[in-house]
Design a protein around this nucleic acid. Structure first.
Lengths: 194, 194
DNA sequence: TTACAATGTGTACAGCGTTCACATTAGGTC
DNA sequence: GACCTAATGTGAACGCTGTACACATTGTAA
């Protein structure tokens, strides 16, 4: 584990860039996430990051990939193994809460055109998609998990975005939670009783 | 109605900028939408647009506002006065189709942080929100239109975004249509039978 | 006609992404 | 330990961007 003792070589610039990028994202939103600002914060010349990221998009994709992993953790923390519609609704609430708590990160993850180049990013989104599918399958063993998981994901994702864009009442977390729960419950009561 | 006869004053630079901005958006995506490129296309100096738009965001907001109006027209064209869940589903299909047909425009409308400054933009989103509410109320006179319209809008909006991000199967329009219809039908069959 | 307000021009500055030649250093080989 | 090579960081440079400012031009109303 090299340190920043020798002032020339940084030691772990790749990780330092990622950390700086995330800090800038939280502080100034995605507009403040510039390669040069990242380099400045890492205490390194403007072009040094190019040794570790092909271009700005590559860095952003790496940030997004981290975001996907953290979203997955956040959902798992809401309920490790949901088995009832209510437990699943808790996961949905966590999804929307994640979006509202870290809007810039959520936008980086979903609002930009997803470049099919970044394998890291594609793998991360595939993982989360699979995760949702698994939950739905566990809660409703009988139904086709593909169709239902798509529907519930879309519903929750849409709620997240509309809240993010200020198109819904997001005044208090309680209001948001209740709304998400109600929407998910409505969707599930039909699927569970065919 | 002044013309571009006198080479100094453009005549209607405001509209020309809007048109140029929309063309650039379709050609190069939102990355190509720069104020300077707009000015070049309008055949005018780089700073001339500032007489009509305070900054780049103001121009983008104006483009988004046009997008909202066109989306409303597009939905109305799908079915002028939906009265059944199936007719409403047709409107939902039109919504997703709009997003897939004009991804750059859709992203400008929804994927960027909505600045509460632009009255034009706020009014346009309020109008479309009200429009959805009206439809839901017409199709389901009995239920609370606020809650249900929020849910259906979120569902359709989420479907649009997931398709846009390549997270769902968008291989053919038919596949997309069927999926949207199925999702909306599932949501409505419960709300219609309390 | 004349003054004023509206509109377009040109210059300038700082910041950005990115390329390229060069400097420095870490780690394996003799 | 000395040496070579690949990895990593530097600096200058280019063209692009948004935007501010002083100035030029023109439509319009008095």
């Amino acid at each position: 584990m090299p340190q920043a003792s020798s002032s020339y070589h940084h030691g772990d610039l790749r990780a330092a860039c990622l950390r700086a990028a995330r800090e800038l994202l939280e502080e100034d939103g995605s507009a403040g996430l510039s390669l040069r600002a990242v380099a400045r914060r890492a205490g390194v010349s403007a072009t040094a990051p190019y040794r570790h990221y092909a271009d700005r998009d590559a860095l952003v994709s790496a940030v997004a990939a981290e975001g996907y992993r953290e979203l997955a953790e956040h959902l798992a923390a809401a309920h490790p193994e949901p088995r009832t519609p209510d437990e699943l609704a808790s996961v949905a609430v966590a999804y929307v809460r994640f979006a509202l708590d870290r809007p810039a990160m959520f936008r980086v993850m979903f609002a930009e055109p997803c470049d099919p180049n970044s394998e890291e990013r594609v793998a991360a989104t595939a993982a989360i998609s699979e995760y949702v599918r698994g939950i739905v399958h566990a809660v409703f063993p009988g139904v086709d998990p593909d169709a239902l998981s798509t529907t519930v994901w879309a519903l929750v994702h849409g709620l997240a975005f509309l809240h993010l864009d200020g198109k819904l009442d997001s005044s208090t977390p309680e209001v948001v939670d209740a709304q998400v729960r109600a929407a998910v419950r409505a969707l599930f009561s039909v699927s569970a009783a065919p």
